[in-house]
Design a protein around this nucleic acid. Structure first.
Length: 236
DNA sequence: GACCAGGCACATC
DNA sequence: GATGTGCATGGT
């Protein structure tokens, strides 16, 4: 297929028209979207994990990867009894990489997990509880210095593992809110995050549900025109 | 068989 | 600072 056609198909896919929302304040729009999504899709029960530590490892493994593949990798870690701070701190990188293979990018992700474990043991003696006792902004900055931990991964860890009031922004969030004209197309992470954190109360359960609902919508309704037309956000 | 997924770091300009 | 590229498996 010629390159130009590929570009055109991608272009079409990303420009599936959504019905623009009526003009009202940003806070009111954000709340209206949240209410609509929650009413139509229900609670999402995020993050699917047995412990905060599992959330953290899952957050690293899910970078640019479908959750289905991450689950396989997490199960492999459980089978080998490696889903534990001390065991992951001690395990050799090669064995770790082979264990998390189904999650893709396994060599780079093994390095990233090891980087986090090194940080956890050097700064907090391997204790997730101690880590989350740290002041929120300081911890966020510290985590962002760890190689392999970008803003989305760090914020996912803070919200879903630590229960901290931080809004998680991902590609779906940008896509949906660009289409609804609430952010410019070239908005960067901090700008998108500010839309939520400057206009909504810092409510952890709501931030939890809101992000999860956006991922759900992005996954199932922004794929193609027929699905987009059934999106619960149309007409909000 | 192409495309995509719950990103990030690094090189280059 | 913006843009391009490598990282890689498994489902659709």
């Amino acid at each position: 297929m010629p390159v130009c056609k590929l570009v055109l198909l991608k272009h079409q896919r990303w420009n599936v028209p959504c019905i623009p929302m009526a003009r009202k304040g940003k806070r009111a729009q954000l709340l209206a979207i949240y209410r609509t999504l929650y009413d139509s899709l229900g609670p999402q029960h995020w993050w699917p994990a047995d412990s905060p530590f599992e959330v953290i490892i899952g957050a690293i493994l899910t970078q640019n990867t479908s959750w289905n593949n991450v689950e396989k990798a997490l199960n492999n870690l459980k089978d080998k009894e490696l889903l534990d701070p001390l065991r992951l701190y001690d395990v050799r990188e090669g064995l770790l990489a082979r264990t998390i293979k189904p999650s893709g990018f396994f060599n780079i992700k093994a390095k990233r997990v090891k980087h986090f474990m090194q940080f956890l043991f050097e700064c907090y003696r391997g204790s997730i509880e101690k880590m989350f006792e740290e002041d929120l902004q300081s911890l966020r900055e510290e985590l962002l210095t760890v190689n392999g931990m970008g803003p989305e991964t760090v914020d996912s860890i803070l919200l879903y593992a630590g229960g901290k009031p931080v809004f998680v922004v991902d590609a779906y969030t940008k896509r949906i809110f660009t289409r609804h004209k609430l952010i410019p197309e070239d908005a960067r992470y901090g700008e998108v995050q500010g839309l939520f954190m400057n206009n909504l109360e810092h409510n952890v359960p709501m931030f939890n549900e809101y992000h999860a609902l956006l991922v759900n919508v992005g996954k199932y309704f922004c794929k193609s025109k027929p699905r987009c037309e059934q999106c619960p956000l149309n007409g909000v």
